[in-house]
Every structure is written in structure tokens, then in C-alpha cells.
């Protein structure tokens, strides 16, 4: 009887499966264990946003709404020039349109948008799916810390910027700058962007990986650091 082995195999397979733990996720009772890079909801860190509109323009289905206005910041020094800065009035993401592509997060130059694994924000009324900036800001608490960097990876942009000597330091202080002076010296600029700390690094203060060996001519270049341009850029 040729089908007999298959028949017994079927019985064995089902019996073996019955002995193993089940795969059922008891979702409402047990929270799912989502990977940190899950695309649940988009969180907004309002302090970092410069109303540059890049996210809104790149959004494939135009679900980001940004309103802003300019405010004049009076000069801080006598005879100085008044500065202008953007003030964010409205930042809203319509999650009924959002297709969770993450392009806005990719293009944001100032790390103002983050993925959060939170996904329990369904609504009865579709209009309630428009999350205004306060609600988007509340999601920041759920943003997981970024995964630890790989061993011997390049420094994160903030740390590289922080450890860079202050502008003009090379010219004034000369070539004998000690390692670490860039971070601790009076001229050091801390990054203006705030960002969740990497899981591995904790609260360790940023330390330079290698002593600065640049010549005085090469140190002060005018290009702003990649991750911390507002220090120069916004009030220029």
C-alpha cells in the first residue's frame, strides 16, 4: 500500500507540531516584541525642526503640512545685526495618507523626524489620524535608542562635530592643541541637535578617537559640520 508511509508521516508531523510551543501572538494581552526599526509611527522632535520643508516636499503623497513664520531676533551685541529665524507654527502628518515609506525621515537634515515602533493609534474618525505637532512630539518618548554602532565604525556626526576644535582655534591657539581640548576647551561647540543616545554608548561623554594632527592651515575650514549646522547656519 503505497500511501501508507505518507499517511504515517502526516500523523507524525501533526503530533510533533502539537508538542512544540505555539506561534500564536496573544496580541491585545501580550504586547508584541517589535524590532527597534519597526515603522510604526513618525515622531517629531520639534526643537530640531527648521521648517525647511524638505520632508513635506519629498513626501510622495503630500501628507505633511508645515506652517511657519519668521521672527526677528534682536541683536545680542551693541550695534549688531538683527537676526531672523523660522518659528514652526504647524507640523502635521496625515497618517490616513502616509504610506510609511520613511522618506521624510531620510531627508530630514536636522534629525527632527524619527521612526517609532508604536502602532496603536487607530481612530474611529479618519480625520483624527492627522497628528499635529504636539501629538507627533509625544511619540518621541517611544522612539527607541538607535542600535549601537559597529565596532570601529566612524564616529557619529554629533560627536565628530563636538570634538572638532572651535572655529579659529587652530589659528589662535597654534598647533600644540592637546588631544581632547576640542571637547573640553572653552571654544568647543556642543551639537545643537538633540538625539536619542546610542544604546551602547550611554551617557559617556564624547571623546576624540585620535589626537588632532592637522596642521594649523587645515584645521579651520568653513564647511559647517554635517549634523550641526544650525550653530552657523540659521543665524547667518
Amino acid at each position: 500500500m503505497s500511501p501508507l508511509p505518507g499517511i504515517l508521516k502526516g500523523l507524525a508531523t501533526t503530533a510533533r507540531t502539537a508538542m512544540r510551543p505555539t506561534h500564536t501572538a496573544e496580541y491585545p494581552d501580550v504586547a508584541p516584541d517589535l524590532p527597534p526599526r519597526s515603522r510604526g509611527v513618525i515622531a517629531l522632535l520639534e526643537e530640531n525642526c527648521t521648517s525647511c520643508m524638505l520632508c513635506a516636499r519629498e513626501c510622495p503623497d503630500w501628507c505633511i503640512y508645515i506652517d511657519s513664520h519668521k521672527e526677528t531676533v534682536p541683536a545680542t551685541t551693541e550695534g549688531g545685526r538683527d537676526r531672523q529665524r523660522n518659528v514652526l507654527d504647524r507640523f502635521a502628518i496625515d497618517f490616513s495618507l502616509c504610506m510609511y515609506c520613511g522618506i521624510c525621515i531620510e531627508v530630514c537634515p536636522f534629525d527632527a523626524l524619527f521612526w517609532s515602533p508604536q502602532f496603536e493609534y487607530s481612530e474611529v474618525d479618519i480625520r483624527d489620524l492627522i497628528h499635529e505637532k504636539d501629538r507627533l512630539g509625544q511619540w518621541m518618548a517611544t522612539v527607541p535608542p538607535p542600535p549601537a554602532l559597529d565596532e570601529r565604525a566612524a564616529e557619529p556626526g554629533e560627536i565628530a562635530a563636538a570634538t572638532k576644535p572651535a572655529r579659529g582655534a587652530g589659528l589662535v591657539g597654534g598647533a600644540g592643541t592637546a588631544p581632547g581640548a576640542g571637547a573640553t576647551g572653552p571654544g568647543a561647540r556642543m551639537p545643537r541637535t538633540v538625539r536619542p543616545r546610542p544604546a551602547g554608548t550611554g551617557t559617556r561623554p564624547p571623546t576624540p578617537r585620535e589626537p588632532l594632527t592637522g596642521t594649523p592651515e587645515s584645521v579651520p575650514d568653513d564647511t559647517p559640520p554635517a549634523a550641526g549646522p544650525p550653530a552657523d547656519g540659521e543665524t547667518r
Binding site: 501533526t14 503530533a15 507540531t17 502539537a18 512544540r20 505555539t22 506561534h23 500564536t24 496573544e26
Partner: peptide
Amino acid sequence: KVMAHMQGRLGPM
């Protein structure tokens, strides 16, 4: 219950 566990499920809970 038996069918659920044989299919890797929990069945009615």
C-alpha cells in the same frame, strides 16, 4: 484545542 496545537495555534482562549 488539539487541532489548534497541531497547527501551531492556541485555539479558543
